[in-house]
Design a protein around this nucleic acid. Structure first.
Lengths: 340, 340
DNA sequence: ACTTGGCACTCGGATTCCGGGAGTGCCAGC
DNA sequence: GCTGGCACTCCCGGAATCCGAGTGCCAAGT
């Protein structure tokens, strides 16, 4: 089939371009791949592919370069995720196993991913809203000052200082703690608001004022501020992206430093486990239109709690990158689930 | 005095070079500064300065550029820290005041500093070893699994999971907690090891095994792993460092991603409050020999607990940078002390 | 209907070759 | 010790040139 060969040509172009970073011409294509036809034939195919918008030439009489659409077809139809070798998998496992707490897991994972892919890696902390309360503590710091500590089962710790208008003694503190804990322990964070709704009313007078302050802060912690954290690594790899790419480093770095952007990159679709690839302009973030983003969800227990992935030039090794991203996500999920 | 004028010339060269990023010649120097002498005279002074190793010419018959030593003299003898304007100070204050917890303070500060200086900013978390125990909690996760949570008065939270060989029930957990808490609460972390040394012996049989495990983990947390954390911001500014500097971005980024390097940059001299400037080769870190590092300690209460600072090209605006660094450090210290 | 070899053509990138100008060092005179 | 003058150096930018990889198209072959 002619159509088949055309796709084979596209695949070859993508592979060669990713490998060499140079526009690829018809001659070198037939030399490096056994396509069984002459350069002239390839040229015809190329013209067709160009008409379809899958490849383009930087200037007349230069080789061809895949377009974003070309990569899209490559990823969707022409490539398979490349699994990690056994050795690599072992390395990942042993590297991540040493982690002592959540921060450590996140940090190790993101660095590992950056190293594996030689790109910029990012990882989102497990979503607070999806996890439950492992422990809640109230500590008296001063007569009118309470430290509220909330630990979730994903390992995240949130702490907040509550200033109360009235003095709170140990006894009151203890009673508040008991009431709150019996309502929220083990509950999902999303349910906490409901569970503590009427606690305030169980206190009278001054005590109610204090309780209200504590509850308000608690609600703030679990509801209003379900701000997600993101960790980044491998920005040094940006410099490698390339010779030609150099000028574009700045906007990318800038975008990557903006937490909100990172979160958008990792995708609203927090619930999806699917390996997602967004290529070039498919990213709505300005300044990242020359980059691709590969993300996947990772799970804690049997629920997807957050995303991780990498950002790289559109001309990246998609199969390999996808393999690394998927592998790391699996290991992260496993580690987190074990440590739970 | 001739010597005085020479230094004035050096100052003028540094200022012009920092402003223009171009080698500065004798003519433009007399034009831009009122030195009251002719270009020829300046040339003589320049020759002398070059002999002293304070300036250099990139190539014969080009203008002069300050050497690391030249910057050194400039910083030590020719410049004063430039204080922030009232407006700037207000901006700093209001920006940092919104912080809700330690992470937030660190993050806001480092970003602010990056923005103020247009360079890469770094901040070290308050040293664990210098602070004391605000709260310690043991939470039973499973029959043989305990979560150890340690909160220091600087706001840092450390948590660790302890696996015990034997089952620990609520009663035992409570007794362990009481014993430990009464020994360590309010104590400095450095003293914790001594205080808990003989707690293990207060338990018998199986209980001792469990207690030993908990104490071991606790010690690990406070002693062995006084690993310091560092936060980074403004790497996008690296791209601005410059036209000529571009090629050097990679090693700098790499160095900056290595935590150990960051810590070395911030200086072992954790106890010093002094504004420190390390210029070019004065940094022992490889790959950063074309950069300068400006650091200063910040305090919590009346003790210096960590350092913060910026990394930039040797041709930076030293007075301004020093002013920003010092100002931010003061505000951070104030905020932390207030929130304590 | 495809494929293929041939061929003229295009155009970007590297190379070379000036010319201008900024800057220097030195010297003689004030 | 300062200054104007002067010869010299050498970087930088632009124009001109050349080279070659690559293309598109066509006519012929299967």
């Amino acid at each position: 089939m002619v159509e088949d060969r055309r796709l084979a040509v596209l695949r070859a172009i993508v592979e060669d371009y990713v490998a060499t970073h140079e526009p690829v011409g018809s001659r070198s294509l037939v030399e490096r791949h056994s396509l069984g036809v002459s350069p002239a034939t390839i040229r015809n195919d190329m013209a067709a592919l160009e008409d379809e918008g899958l490849i383009a030439q930087p200037h007349t009489s230069a080789g061809r370069v895949p377009t974003d659409q070309g990569y899209r077809v490559f990823v969707d139809r022409l490539s398979a995720v490349k699994p990690m070798s056994a050795a690599e998998r072992r390395a990942i496992g042993s590297f991540l196993d040493g982690a002592v707490d959540l921060d450590d897991v996140m940090q190790r994972s993101v660095r590992l991913l950056a190293q594996l892919t030689r790109q910029v890696a990012l990882i989102q902390y497990p979503s607070l809203t999806r996890s439950s309360v492992r422990h809640l503590e109230l500590v008296g710091l001063a007569p009118t000052r309470i430290l509220l500590v909330l630990i979730s089962d994903s390992g995240r710790v949130e702490q907040r200082v509550v200033e109360t208008a009235v003095v709170v003694d140990d006894d009151l503190l203890g009673r508040m703690r008991t009431r709150i804990v019996e309502q929220v322990n083990g509950q999902r964070l999303v349910d906490v608001a409901d569970r503590v709704a009427d606690i305030t009313e169980q206190f009278q007078g001054d005590e109610r004022t204090a309780a209200a302050a504590v509850i308000a802060t608690l609600l703030e912690t679990v509801v209003e501020r379900h701000e997600e954290r993101v960790m980044l690594a491998g920005t040094a790899n940006l410099a490698t992206f390339g010779e030609d790419f150099t000028g574009a480093v700045r906007p990318v770095l800038e975008a990557l430093e903006e937490q909100m952007v990172l979160l958008r990159l990792l995708g609203e679709s927090r619930t999806t486990e699917a390996l997602t690839v967004r290529i070039g302009h498919e990213n709505e973030v300005e300044g990242l239109s020359a980059t691709s983003v590969v993300t996947v969800g990772y799970s804690l227990g049997d629920e997807i709690v957050a995303q991780l992935g990498v950002v790289g030039p559109t001309r990246m090794d998609y199969p390999g990158t996808m393999g690394s991203v998927r592998a790391v996500a699996r290991y992260v999920g496993r580690i987190l689930t074990e440590q739970q």
